[in-house]
Simulated assay, not measured.
Amino acid sequence: MNDIYIYGASGHGKVVLDIALNLNLAIAGFVDRNPLLSKFEGYEVIKSVPSKANYIIAIGDNSIRQKIAQTSSGDLLPALIHKHAIIGGNVLLGQGTMVAAGAIINPSVIVKSNCIINTAAVIEHDCVIEDFVHISPNVTLCGSVIVGKGTHVGAGAVIIPGVKIGDWCTIGAGTVVIKDIPNGATVVGNPGRIIKSI
Rank of each mutant, 00 (worst) to 15 (best):
K52C: 01
G184F: 01
I6G: 01
G94A: 03
L141M: 00
F132Y: 15
K149Y: 05
G184S: 09
T151W: 02
A157C: 11
L77G: 09
I87P: 00
S144D: 06
T71N: 14
V158M: 14
V109G: 11
H125Q: 08
I86D: 11
H82S: 15
L25Q: 06
L93N: 10
Q95E: 03
D32M: 10
S72V: 14
V188S: 03
V31T: 00
K164C: 13
I165Q: 11
V128S: 13
I116A: 12
D180V: 00
G172V: 02
I198R: 13
I56Q: 05
P161A: 07
P182F: 06
G8H: 05
G162L: 07
I68T: 08
G150L: 02
V109N: 00
I86F: 13
V49H: 00
V49R: 01
K52W: 01
L36N: 03
G89Y: 14
V163M: 02
V139T: 12
T119K: 15
V188F: 12
A157L: 08
N138A: 13
V188Q: 01
G174Q: 14
G11S: 10
G29A: 02
K47F: 09
I46Q: 07
P182A: 06
A69H: 03
T119E: 05
G74R: 04
V153Y: 01
A9C: 10
S72L: 12
S197Y: 11
N183E: 13
I56T: 04
K67A: 03
Y7T: 13
F30L: 04
Y43H: 12
H125P: 14
E130D: 09
V31G: 00
G162P: 15
V177K: 06
K149R: 10
I159R: 00
A155C: 08
K196V: 04
E124H: 10
I68F: 09
Q95T: 02
H82R: 02
S197Q: 14
K83Y: 11
I117Y: 06
P137L: 01
C142L: 05
